[in-house]
């Protein structure tokens, strides 16, 4: 288990397990993304370059995007990929619940910077057609996992 320090919100995650899971499907999912001149999780909106106090809020919103709009809408006949994605989604759900606890304890404030960054991520996502956006967001899970890792 890894400990993520998101300002005063501290949670533990199975980052290694998520990385293992994604590495098994990464090539396949990224090969589906043919729009290589667009990136949703861009450097300038990265989690680790966000004010620590706002990192919890940003991560919470990004995880909600993945849970509500990405994992749910990805379709493939490949059961192996579906299993891996289901496991990743469950891990995201667990993290989101922990972040919810931080929110309840007032250690997950949503300030301007975090909301500004999230709205940019959302607009990059919504610029694309639904199927393209889902495939691209999935292909960028290695970026998101790295963002989380960098807040260790």
């Amino acid at each position: 288990l890894k400990t993520l320090h998101l300002g005063s919100c501290v949670i533990t995650t199975n980052l290694q397990e998520m990385r293992n899971g994604f590495s098994e499907i990464r090539d396949h999912v990224q090969a589906e993304d043919e729009i290589i001149d667009v990136r949703i999780l861009r450097k300038m909106v990265s989690l680790q370059d966000t004010e620590p106090a706002g990192q919890c809020c940003l991560l919470r919103h990004v995880l909600r995007l993945y849970l509500d709009k990405v994992f749910k809408n990805y379709q493939t006949p490949d059961h192996h990929i579906l299993r891996k994605l289901s496991s990743l989604a469950n891990s995201f759900l667990t993290i989101k619940k922990d972040l919810r606890l931080c929110h309840d304890r007032m250690t997950c404030p949503c300030w301007e910077e975090a909301m500004e960054k999230y709205s940019r991520i959302l607009s990059h996502f919504e610029e694309l057609k639904p199927r393209e956006a889902v495939v691209k967001a999935l292909g960028e899970l290695d970026i998101l996992l790295r963002w989380m890792e960098e807040t260790e």
């Binding site: 043919e34 290589i36 001149d37 667009v38 694309l128 393209e132």
Partner: peptide, 9 residues
């Protein structure tokens, strides 16, 4: 530059 969302030819 390429127009957005165009796969590079």
């Amino acid at each position: 530059p390429l127009p957005p969302h165009v796969t590079p030819n």
